[in-house]
Simulated assay, not measured.
Amino acid sequence: MSDLISPSVSIPETAKDDPRLAHWLNNNSDSVQTVLVGFPSDEGVRRNGGRPGASKAPSEIREQLYKMTPSAEYYDPFVTLLEGCEDAGDIEVTGNLETDQERLGDTIAEFLEQGVVPIILGGGHETAFGHFLGYAKAEKRTSIFNLDAHSDVRPLKEDKAHSGSPFRQALEHKSGCGETYLVSGLQPHSVSQSHLDFIKEQGGHYKFRDETNITAISGLFHQHESEQLMVTFDMDAVDQSQAPGVSAPCTNGLPADLWLTAAYMAGRNEKVTSFDLSEVNPEYDRDNQTTKLAALTIWHFLLGLSQR
């Protein structure tokens, strides 16, 4: 994994009677089943006219995740999962978005081929196309589920990818590996009708914010025939009172409890083979509120994985 570099993050001390996730994530496992990968890129956000700063998110999310404990309620299965989980580090980002997405794709493809579940810490939502390229490079067809305030199927800008184009790119990719696109949490005032038409033309499905509940999310998780499901969460779907540190704050977003339950459900779904979390922007956070929620999102996804 020559494109991966060790994350620059402080590792908390862990006592034997009070271990934290850092204890497992920073130990090399003999049999890796789940792996964290950072993608510290926000060039796509910059190209899309958003607020840069998401490149700092992977290290900030790790800071919070490392401090967390295994589930006290489901301790044994959670620890069993953690024993096969490690932090592989960050993709070495060059600033050339297309090159960086290819690098992420190479790394994710290798994990998918090994049957390892990668958890990707973005970065802007350009992370999702690099994530998808892992499937294309591994020649694995997948449906894509996105929890987001925006559809992110915009055309390229001057033939360049950006944070608003990843799912159009995936659906139109020459590999044909993007089978179905499922998106929930959409804000009616932030989505173009032409983009919704594109999703329908591609055989996809969408839900608006006021339609997004546990039943709807569960339905979308199963509204496909693919053997695999790539899941991507954009933090700007969450209400800005609970997630102020994002690239595009949402004044009427989803509540954090629904968001966390959705992450748990994704982890528990046996068809989910990868997960990414994008658009956290520490530059605009308040008392680490958003990075803590992001870390807790990963924790809930891990909890779900531990209960498969």
Results as ranks from 00 to 15, higher is better:
T261F: 13
L182E: 05
R62W: 02
A243K: 13
I199T: 11
E227I: 02
A54S: 04
S163E: 00
E83N: 11
L104Q: 01
N96T: 14
D18G: 03
C85P: 01
Q187L: 09
T290Y: 08
A243F: 12
L36D: 05
W24F: 11
H150M: 02
L104C: 01
M235I: 09
D152G: 03
S278I: 00
L36N: 02
T215G: 02
A248V: 06
G134W: 01
Q187Y: 13
A263R: 06
R103P: 08
L65C: 04
P249R: 12
T180P: 00
D87R: 14
E98A: 11
F78R: 13
H195G: 14
K137V: 05
F78N: 05
N28Y: 04
T107S: 12
E73D: 10
A149F: 00
L254D: 12
I144Y: 01
E126N: 12
S41I: 01
H195V: 03
Q33E: 15
V238A: 03
R46A: 12
L156R: 06
L36A: 07
I199K: 06
A243T: 08
E279T: 05
Y75P: 07
I199M: 04
L25S: 06
G89I: 13
P40C: 03
N213I: 10
K137Q: 01
P77C: 09
S190G: 01
K174M: 06
L121M: 06
S2Q: 13
P249A: 07
M1L: 04
S2A: 14
V32K: 00
A15T: 02
V37M: 04
S241Y: 01
N48Q: 13
I214N: 14
Q64R: 15
N213V: 15
T99W: 09
L121S: 03
T291A: 07
P70V: 10
A128G: 01
H125P: 00
V117D: 03
L303G: 10
S31L: 10
H195P: 15
F111P: 03
K56Y: 13
S190V: 03
D17S: 10
S165H: 03
S192P: 11
P118T: 10
F198Q: 04
T99P: 04
T14Y: 05
G50K: 01
A295K: 14
D90G: 04
F301I: 12
L21Y: 14
E270H: 03
E179H: 07
D17R: 09
V35F: 09
P188E: 14
D239C: 11
I61F: 10
T14M: 11
R154S: 09
I217L: 15
E98C: 15
T212Q: 02
E13D: 06
D100S: 14
I214K: 15
V117R: 01
G53S: 02
S165I: 00
R268E: 14
G122C: 00
L254K: 11
P40T: 01
L112I: 12
E98Y: 15
G122N: 05
L196G: 08
Q64F: 11
S241I: 05
G176H: 06
L302K: 03
S55F: 04
L81A: 01
R154M: 07
S143T: 04
W299E: 06
L302H: 10
Q101S: 09
V246C: 02
E102C: 08
R308T: 12
Y74N: 05
E270N: 15
N146L: 01
L121A: 06
L293T: 11
P12M: 08
A72P: 13
K174G: 01
S218Q: 13
V238H: 05
E60V: 07
I11E: 14
V45E: 05
L81G: 00
